[in-house]
Design a protein around this nucleic acid. Sequence first.
DNA 1: GCCAATTTTGTAAGCGTTTACACTCGACGT
DNA 2: ACGTCGAGTGTAAACGCTTACAAAATTGGC
Lengths: 344, 344
Amino acid sequence: MLQAKTPRVTIQDVAALSGLSICTVSRALRDLPNVSLEARVKVGDAAAKLGYKASPAASRLAGGRTGCVAIIVPTATAWFFAQAVEAAEEMFADSGYDTVLISLRNRPSVQHQLFADLTGLAQRVDGVLLLNIALSAAELAALAGSGLAVASVGMHDVPWDNVGIDNEEAARTATEHLLGLGHWDLAMLCGSEAGEPSLVTANERLRGFEQALSAHHLTVDPDLVLPAGSSIEGGRVAMIELIENRRMPSAILAGCDETAFGALMALRDLGLSAPKNVSIIGIDDHQMSWFLGLSTISQPVADQGAFAASLLIERLHRSGLPNPPASHVLDTKLLPRKSTRRRR
Amino acid sequence: MLQAKTPRVTIQDVAALSGLSICTVSRALRDLPNVSLEARVKVGDAAAKLGYKASPAASRLAGGRTGCVAIIVPTATAWFFAQAVEAAEEMFADSGYDTVLISLRNRPSVQHQLFADLTGLAQRVDGVLLLNIALSAAELAALAGSGLAVASVGMHDVPWDNVGIDNEEAARTATEHLLGLGHWDLAMLCGSEAGEPSLVTANERLRGFEQALSAHHLTVDPDLVLPAGSSIEGGRVAMIELIENRRMPSAILAGCDETAFGALMALRDLGLSAPKNVSIIGIDDHQMSWFLGLSTISQPVADQGAFAASLLIERLHRSGLPNPPASHVLDTKLLPRKSTRRRR
DNA sequence: GCCAATTTTGTAAGCGTTTACACTCGACGT
DNA sequence: ACGTCGAGTGTAAACGCTTACAAAATTGGC
């Protein structure tokens, strides 16, 4: 049952069997130019016969390329990131790259530590995929000058390829949906809570909400805009605050679906429900939203991960820097479900 | 702004500055024996002054150790796995290992491909952490003989360290809870659907259900045991089948929380609800269960990932094989919530 | 047919570690 | 005094690949 310790077939063996030099074998195996068709065939056959696979360790040392890419996430447990990571990992795996997962665990110290040793990271991976990472100017500059290929999801004004959605538009669409149902007394549960770092995403969505109202000659009532973070609990607390200390609006836009979940829960605990007492719409189309009948704006999560990953791979392959970094905006879609209905 | 291309400090530089040989430096840096205290200090100082970090690529090639471990998951998107992965990744990162994420994406072909080239994997990582991977006998043997250090979560009869929960007991406890509330007409929504591979976990939970009933001199009604997979949709379908073509029991044990979610949804769609029309309890304590008020049996998900990771690291460090593999069973806990109540 | 230009192929020097082995040297028992 | 031992150190050979550079073979223009 125990394998006899395999003697390890090296490039030498392939060279010997094919009757060519190590150098030619190496080039043939990597599809480099200046190798005759005849040689390619010989090498291919020999390699296949011996079951030869280049030693990654040796390739790295000699060639400098690691064959690994890192995915950096704020936390791996959130629904959005898990989804995006899986899609990106698939892309990377299909291109022969190993995926190194690095979670910041929502801790600034971890991020700090990581960026303090970017050269160390650069020795372990060829490129990095950033998912919604809030970067300081210094970190951004360091990364750009690290020699690593970079791509990101959901970031802005970065000197590398980025993929994301138009958050303003998403919020605008959600708001229009509510307005279209005859609601005009709208609340928004969105934005970072006191003491937390402000979320780019949340600010943009807030702006979209305002824009939609303005377009209908309505103004936002400051009393009806409450910070709610992006957790269920944050949404629950905000909803209770809204009902008990402000007033019940006709409809609510939640900054993200988790916030909406919390709001729904608060309603239920108070013996109320949506859309009976208030219409609620979220943004994201979380896995559970369909289940809960929550109207929302869906965004292509896996697509964003996969697309950004493919852009990174592209960069990796043509290491020359011909094309400037581009920002890609993916479509979102309104998904009306049971939690919103016409005002009566 | 652009860093001048760093000339890379090598072990040579440290040797020169410390006035010792490369060999001594290498040993001192790795805390190997046979190095005088004096030498250690000199080397330490020199390395610190130069900011020296050993090149991972070179270490790998010469030493054979990669400094990477792989986490293999059926899918990275499921709540359970995302949770366990993050905990394990933290453990690995703290021990200086990079975490390579490999998702099987629920596709047998991916698993097949992976196990077809275990020697390739062994060249890229030092060890693997398996999360609930269903292994064929051949795969198990191949892995055991691959030279890789292995640990797992939620597996059985494996020749390496494993961490898991007692699924029979969990189901038994859940069932006892229902019985204790005066319910005796029990249904169970659990097990793989036709055509799917059978899930070890599900079978064990089914057994626990039967055991609890037997202990109370009750027998399971075959009509009230329905396969439901482990998805929300599976639970929904099973619940509808139960109500429409079998009969409504007094209480239901769902094989996992997702199944329970589906059941709750089916109830709602039929104008019914828990615990009003039927009590429902799940197993897992999914993130959303608290939110939905679902009674359940909680299992320590992150702990399982972290614990298994630490066991793997342990193995990695003392590569001699003194201690036999052990199986660790973690505690579960009954969490009564709103979805179950006393029969009246 | 002959020389330059252009492939194709081979030689050998890295890449930066780890590690087997040889060596030095003081301590120790006899 | 003398051989033995072991701790501390150094030399040099891997590790298995990539890649300048040189050499050989082919091509093409006159």
